[in-house]
Write a protein that binds this DNA or RNA. Structure first.
Length: 284
DNA sequence: CCCCAGTCCTGCGGGC
DNA sequence: TGCCCGCAGGACTGGG
């Protein structure tokens, strides 16, 4: 579930880690199947102990810690992963603990935690070239908050895919997931099943502008915490953008945009899509 | 190259 | 009440 707004909120929430030094790193005892951590934790300890965190960056849907050794610790939350500086929702899903010493000795030590209920998340330490190869511009499109209408059009207009499916392609544009794709297309008034190669320049402009608008607002509300309550910010507090969803998860309810149409749920490439047939007609 | 279906993983809720 | 099954959708893989 964490998409761009949730990951951006995570990164802002752990800003206090910048300038700290890693003193310890360990995988807590856990009955569940361990998450994928590369390299293995013993190697990771050796490579990270004493390293200083120079910056916290968001790369698409991934929070990244850049160290003073030219390496990057890349967290991939996937569905249910969280980065926390506070107590986790529970301890059995705690996957990785990192102890941090602040530069200012008068301040207390920090505990950065990676918590993940489903365990689909991963943690990787990458050097400069591995980072470029795995998360560079060859693999990841421009960030969804920055992408222009013409960039979006250039990257997708030749595709035969349905536009909602294409917006989830991280090589085209980085950061959009299933939830925000639905909200973005509602604001753009584009039917999710329209084919990319049939959209006009005006359509791409509307999508690009809706993308910025929806994601910026979702960041202001610190992301969406759905009914399962999984997503939390770094202090284990819920986001509130779910209260502003217009179509996502609202099947058969009145559209909160036009208040005339009823939200429809369809399945596209094995994923739920929500849209309003009034606001988003298939024939334009 | 382009695109789709299957896979990983856990918890929850519906149906019986 | 308890069990089973389907669903949630990140990213990746293999194959048509």
């Amino acid at each position: 579930m964490p998409e761009l707004p949730e990951v951006e909120t995570m990164c802002r929430g752990i800003a206090a880690c910048r300038g700290t030094t890693i003193t310890a790193l360990y995988r807590p005892r856990c009955q569940l199947k361990p998450i994928q951590i590369r390299p293995q934790v013993s190697t990771l300890k050796k490579k990270l102990r004493g390293a200083r965190i120079e910056a916290i960056e968001r790369v698409g849907k991934r929070p990244v810690l850049r160290t003073d050794r030219g390496t990057r610790l890349v967290f991939e939350p996937r569905m249910t992963g969280l980065l926390l500086l506070a107590d986790p929702p529970d301890t059995e899903h705690l996957r990785l603990c990192i102890e941090l010493a602040p530069a200012d000795r008068r301040r207390s030590a920090l505990n950065l935690l990676f918590w993940d209920r489903r365990g689909l998340g991963t943690v990787r330490l990458l050097n400069e070239s591995a980072f470029e190869a795995q998360l560079g511009s060859e693999k990841l499109g421009p960030d969804a908050l920055q992408i222009s209408a013409s960039q979006l059009q250039e990257r997708l207009a030749s595709s035969q895919r349905e536009v909602k499916v294409a917006l989830l392609d991280q090589r085209a544009v980085a950061g959009i997931g299933n939830l925000y794709a639905a909200e973005i297309l509602l604001f753009a008034h584009i039917h999710p099943q329209r084919r990319c190669n049939q959209l006009t320049k005006v359509d791409w402009r509307r999508i690009a502008s809706a993308t910025r608008r929806v994601l910026q607002k979702a960041i202001r509300y610190e992301g969406s915490t759905l009914a399962d309550g999984t997503y939390r910010n770094a202090l284990n507090k819920k986001g509130s953008y779910q209260n502003h969803h217009r179509v996502y998860g609202r099947e058969s309810e009145l559209c909160r945009c036009c208040r005339v149409g009823r939200v429809q749920r369809i399945v596209q490439s094995q994923r739920a899509t929500f849209f309003c047939p009034e606001c988003q007609p298939l024939a334009s």
